[in-house]
C-alpha cells in the first residue's frame, strides 16, 4: 500500500478556479473498474493545471485509493477533496495504463 505503480504519476491540481472541471466515468462493478477522465473543461482547475489528460485513470485522490469504490462513491470523494478548505490543492495519482 502506498507504493506507486510503475506507470503512475502524481498530479497536484491547485484550486485555481471555482470548479475542478473534469468528468469521470467508471467505478467498481462497471466495465471501467477505476474512474477514467473523459472530459477536461476549459477554465477549470484541472485544465489550468495542465497535467491531467483525457483517458487517464485515477488510482488515488489525496492518498485515498479508489479501488473497490463504486462510481458515486468515487465521485463524492473527488468532490469533497475539491470542496474542503483544508488544502488548496487536490493530489491525483493517475495512470495512462488502463
Amino acid at each position: 500500500p502506498g507504493l506507486l505503480e510503475p506507470t503512475s504519476t502524481l498530479v497536484r491540481v491547485a484550486k485555481s478556479a471555482s470548479t475542478l472541471g473534469i468528468a469521470i466515468e467508471g467505478g467498481a462493478n462497471t466495465r471501467q473498474p477505476l474512474p477514467r477522465i473523459v472530459t477536461i473543461q476549459r477554465g477549470g482547475s484541472a485544465h489550468n493545471c495542465g497535467q491531467l489528460k483525457v483517458g487517464q485513470v485515477i488510482l488515488e485522490v489525496n492518498g485515498n485509493s479508489l479501488k473497490g469504490r463504486e462510481h458515486k462513491d468515487a465521485a463524492r470523494l473527488i468532490a469533497e477533496a475539491f470542496k474542503t478548505k483544508e488544502r488548496d490543492y487536490v493530489d491525483f495519482l493517475v495512470t495512462d495504463f488502463n
Binding site: 468528468a23 466495465r31 473523459v38
Partner: peptide, 15 residues
C-alpha cells in the same frame, strides 16, 4: 473475459 462484457457501462459525472 466474457464476464467483463456483461458488466454495465458507467454513468458519467461532471465534477
Amino acid at each position: 473475459r466474457e464476464k467483463r462484457l456483461t458488466l454495465p457501462p458507467s454513468e458519467i459525472t461532471l465534477l
